[in-house]
Amino acid sequence: MRKKPMVKLEFPYDFELKELVKTFPNCEWNRHEKAWCVPYTDDILDRLILFFKGKVWLDYSTFRKANLPKTFPELPPLALEIFKEIEAFQDWMKNKRYSESTVKTYRGSLEIFFRFLENKPLSEIKNEDLEKFTKDYIIDRQYSVSYQSQVINAIKLFFNIKQNRKLDPEVVSRPRKPSKLPNVLSKEEVKRILEAHKNIKHRTMLSIIYACGLRRSEVLHLKISDVDSKRGLLIVRQSKGKKDRVVPLSDKTIALLREYYKYERPQYFLFEGKKLNSKYSSGSLQKILKSALGKSGIKKPVTLHWLRHSFATHLLENGTDLRYIQEILGHNSSRTTEIYTHVTDNSIRKIKSPFDDL
């Protein structure tokens, strides 16, 4: 019988990374491969990128679709001269206060691009090289639109800053991104997830993500001083786009936070890790959600971001103005928030099908 295709996740031993990898849905240790493996699906690469985004850099240069009939040659190592240029570019990004995840992502994208070009001198790289990379590397390997845009962003910025020249914008324009609806849970499903844990800390962390529509990184960076219970506000500092914003705290949420504080007594971060004054780890938070899904019996591939999507959708269904939802979520553009209008069920369920009149 033919073995089912698997995706192997390889990395140097790191306890926190190992704990994070274990929380990926259906990920198991393979004794024969001596690696963590997940079942192959057509969307597995996109799911892995989404799962590990902002946590670790994912090198998927050797990844190939299970149904591809051909294999791809291994890319050569990076030349020292180009390595130094990328190092300098990385330092520039850090000085400009780019986020850690962006720095890692851009560096990884550039390394793949220059390795594909077999360390061609930077001064000789033309628009045709980028076209060839897009066709013979990204498209040929059937990589995602998100990956293609990521590489283009990195290359544009690198050549503009380090080489003081721009590649043709028409050649390096971003590919058209497919329009996907956000994943949304029903209120009943959310309640089952939030009530699955008896541990007050675990229950509070998941609850505040939904109650305030927070991103994973936002809840992990919350400090005790960010909770303003008298005014009923939560201050989310330096989030995506280096912006601060305030989020309303309901009486129910404040009561839960007070109960949690009396029991846990955190010192600096609202949700602390094992070490003194250290924030809770992303991998452990993922594990909390995975455990809650098991206890609640929900089989959907729920991620922490589903709770944020559900929060926004339920607000809209309750009649909250879209402009307020935009402010609470911290979206720059109202167009980003408008996607939730496509998944609300109040108006859609009122539409009567002509089938009923037959």
Results as ranks from 00 to 15, higher is better:
Pro5Trp: 08
Pro12Cys: 02
Tyr13Thr: 05
Glu16Tyr: 12
Leu20Glu: 09
Val21Ile: 06
Lys22Thr: 08
Lys22Met: 08
Trp29Leu: 08
Asn30Leu: 04
Asn30Arg: 05
Trp36Glu: 04
Thr41Gly: 11
Trp57Val: 13
Thr62Lys: 15
Arg64Glu: 14
Phe72Cys: 02
Leu75Val: 13
Lys84Glu: 15
Ala88Phe: 14
Gln90Pro: 04
Gln90His: 14
Tyr98Pro: 01
Tyr98Val: 05
Ser101Gln: 11
Thr102Trp: 00
Lys104Ser: 14
Tyr106Gly: 04
Gly108Asp: 01
Glu111Ser: 12
Glu118Gln: 10
Glu118Cys: 08
Lys120Arg: 12
Leu122Arg: 07
Ser123Arg: 15
Lys132Glu: 13
Asn153Tyr: 12
Lys156Trp: 02
Lys162Asn: 06
Asp168Trp: 07
Lys177Gln: 13
Pro182Met: 12
Leu185Ile: 08
Ile193Trp: 03
Leu194Glu: 02
Asn199Ala: 04
Ser207Asn: 05
Tyr210Met: 04
Arg216Glu: 07
Val219Asp: 05
Leu220His: 03
Arg258Gly: 04
Tyr263His: 13
Phe269Tyr: 14
Ser284Leu: 09
Ile298Arg: 03
Thr303Asn: 11
Leu304His: 06
Leu322Trp: 05
Leu322Val: 15
Thr344Ala: 13
Ser347Gly: 11
Ser353Ile: 03
Ser353Phe: 01
Ser353Tyr: 05
